[in-house]
Amino acid sequence: MQTANAALNSHAAPSAALLRGTPLARSAPEASALGSFRRLAKDEEVFVEGDRAAFFYKVQSGAVRTFKLLSDGRRQIDAFHLPGDIFGIEPGEEHRFSAEAVGDATVISYRRSNLNAETKDAGDIPNEMIPAVLLSLVRAQNHMLLLGRKNAVEKIASFLLDLSGRTANTDQIDLPMSRTDIADHLGLTIETVSRSLTQLERQGTIELPAHRRCIVLRNKPALERLDM
C-alpha cells in the first residue's frame, strides 16, 4: 500500500493537497464559480445507482459513502469520501454506485459538460481530475487486496491507518461512520469489527475512549506491521 501511494504522489505532486484528503477549494466564491453547494442530512442520497452521471462531486464538509446493494440485500461500501475528496466520476453515462451522506455534510456538484479547455473561472478543478482518478484507482486496488487477502484484525489495522493518513490529527481518529458502515466496507460483521477493535485495544495498539466514535492510535508501528 505504501509503495502504491508513493508512486501516486510522485505523479500528482501539483495536487498534493488532494492526496492528503484536505480541502482544495480556497474559498466559497471560487468553488461556486463552476459548481453549486448542496447541504445533506444524515443518510440523504447524493445519487443512486443507475442515475444519469451528469455531475461529479467534491466533499466540502462531513463524509459521503459510495456503495452497491447486492442481489441478496447486503450492502458493500466501496469507499468513504472525506473533505477534499472528489467522487462520482464515471466513464459512462450512468452511476455504477449509490452515494449518500454519512452524517450532516456539504458537497459541491460540478456539471461534467462544463469541464473543457474553454471553461472560464474553473479554478483548480480541471487540474484535480487526473490525481482524483488515480487516487480512486489506488484506493480501489488497496481495497480489493484488503478484502481478498487480509484477516479481520489486519483489515481493521489497514482501515485505521488509511483514515489516519487522511485526517489532520493522525494519532486520534474521530470516526464519521458507524461500526456497521465499517463492517460493510471491510466485508465483516459488526460483531467481528467490535471484537477486532477490542483485541487491538487489549494489545495496547489502540485506545477506545468512552466516546465510541473516537479511536486513539497508541502504537502505529504495530498497526503498520499488520498492514504489510
Rank of each mutant, 00 (worst) to 15 (best):
M129K: 01
E44F: 03
S10V: 06
P209W: 07
N127C: 03
R38E: 11
H143P: 00
A168D: 14
H81E: 08
Y57D: 12
I89C: 04
A13L: 10
E93Y: 12
L34F: 11
S136T: 02
L186Y: 06
L160G: 01
L160F: 03
I108V: 15
A157E: 04
R111G: 12
R179G: 12
D181K: 01
H11K: 10
A140F: 00
T167P: 02
D184V: 07
L34E: 03
A210N: 11
E90V: 12
D124K: 13
Q172N: 02
A13F: 04
Q60R: 14
N142Y: 01
F67A: 11
P131I: 11
K68E: 10
G35P: 08
E100W: 11
A53L: 09
L134H: 11
L197W: 01
G73V: 02
E201P: 00
P14K: 07
I173W: 01
H11P: 00
M228R: 15
D227I: 00
S178M: 10
F55S: 14
I190L: 07
E100H: 14
R52G: 03
R149Q: 13
I156L: 15
R212D: 08
F87C: 11
T3G: 11
K155Y: 05
A140D: 05
R65N: 03
R139N: 12
M177P: 02
L226N: 03
L208I: 08
G148Y: 11
N127W: 00
L175A: 06
D104F: 15
R212G: 08
F97W: 06
I173Q: 02
A222L: 11
M1N: 10
D43P: 00
R166E: 05
F97L: 14
M144Q: 09
I77A: 03
I215Q: 02
S136W: 00
H143V: 01
S194D: 14
S61R: 14
T22Q: 15
A31I: 05
S164F: 03
R39C: 14
E44S: 10
D51I: 04
M228A: 15
L226H: 06
V193H: 12
P14T: 09
M144P: 00
N116E: 02
S178E: 13
L161M: 10
S178Q: 10
A41W: 10
S158E: 11
Q76H: 09
L18D: 07
N219E: 04
A17Y: 07
V46A: 03
S113T: 12
F37Q: 15
G35R: 08
R112A: 13
G103A: 11
G50S: 06
P23V: 11
P91L: 13
G165V: 06
E191G: 15
Q60G: 12
G21S: 06
L40S: 04
E224V: 15
